[in-house]
Lab assay of single mutants.
Amino acid sequence: LQAFIKTLTGKTFTVEMEPSDTIENLKAKIQDKEGIPPDQQRLIFAGKQLEDGRTLSDYNIQKESTLHLVL
């Protein structure tokens, strides 16, 4: 599935991932794409901060969901 990552500066980019991917995997993909170390990334979806060990499906993240990236 493709999801949108929106930063506080208003920049939006897309990442490809599977519902079974962990938040940790997602942070690694963001690092590959944007060069931001995972330990500096905080991802917010539906008002909740996402925990590394959980999966996208745990948070009911669907295709074309928008996640907010806070540094």
Rank of each mutant, 00 (worst) to 15 (best):
K6R: 11
L67T: 02
S57V: 07
D52I: 05
K48H: 11
I23M: 03
H68A: 05
L43Q: 00
V15P: 00
L71R: 06
M17C: 12
V70P: 00
I61C: 03
L50K: 00
G47S: 04
S20Q: 09
T55E: 04
Q41S: 03
R54N: 10
E64H: 14
L1W: 12
T14S: 10
M17K: 00
S65Q: 10
R54H: 12
S57Y: 08
L69C: 01
T9S: 14
D39V: 07
M17E: 00
M17S: 04
K33W: 07
Q62N: 14
D21V: 03
L43H: 00
G10N: 05
Q41A: 04
Q31R: 13
S57N: 09
A46M: 14
T12P: 04
L8M: 14
T9R: 10
E24R: 14
I44V: 09
D21N: 05
A46Y: 09
L56M: 08
K6M: 13
N25R: 14
K63R: 11
T9I: 06
E64A: 10
R42G: 05
D39N: 12
D32A: 15
A3E: 03
D32H: 10
M17F: 15
I30W: 01
T66K: 07
Q31K: 08
A28Q: 13
L67G: 01
R54S: 06
P19N: 08
R42L: 13
T22K: 07
M17G: 03
E34M: 15
P37F: 05
P38A: 15
L8I: 12
I61M: 08
D58K: 02
N25P: 00
N25I: 14
Q40I: 10
K27R: 05
G10D: 04
I61A: 04
Q2T: 15
T66W: 09
D21A: 09
I36K: 02
R42P: 01
K29T: 05
Q49Y: 13
E34T: 15
A3H: 04
K33F: 09
I5S: 01
I36V: 07
E64V: 07
L8H: 14
N60R: 07
L67S: 01
D52P: 07
P19S: 11
R54F: 13
T22V: 04
L56W: 06
A28C: 07
K63Y: 10
D32G: 08
E34K: 08
I44F: 15
I23F: 02
F45M: 09
L69M: 07
F45I: 05
T9E: 11
S57L: 11
R42A: 07
S20W: 14
K48Q: 14
E16R: 08
T7M: 15
K6E: 10
T66L: 11
T14V: 12
M17N: 02
K48C: 07
G35I: 01
P19F: 12
K6Q: 12
K6H: 14
F45N: 02
K27Q: 02
T14G: 05
L8P: 15
P38E: 09
G35Y: 02
D58H: 12
K48G: 07
I23V: 13
G10I: 03
D39S: 12
H68Y: 15
E18D: 12
I44A: 04
I36M: 05
G47L: 03
E64G: 15
G53M: 08
D21S: 08
T7R: 07
V70L: 13
G10W: 03
I61R: 03
E18I: 11
E64P: 04
T66Y: 08
A46D: 14
G53I: 06
E51K: 07
E34Y: 14
F45V: 04
I44Q: 07
T12Y: 09
I5F: 03
E64C: 09
E24V: 06
N25Y: 12
V15N: 00
V15F: 09
T22S: 07
F4C: 10
E18F: 14
E16K: 08
I5T: 01
E18G: 10
I30S: 00
T66F: 08
T14I: 13
D58R: 02
Q40E: 10
L67N: 02
G53Q: 10
H68S: 07
K6Y: 10
L71K: 05
L71I: 13
Q49N: 11
A28V: 11
Q31C: 09
D52C: 04
E18R: 14
T66V: 15
L56C: 03
R54K: 14
V70A: 06
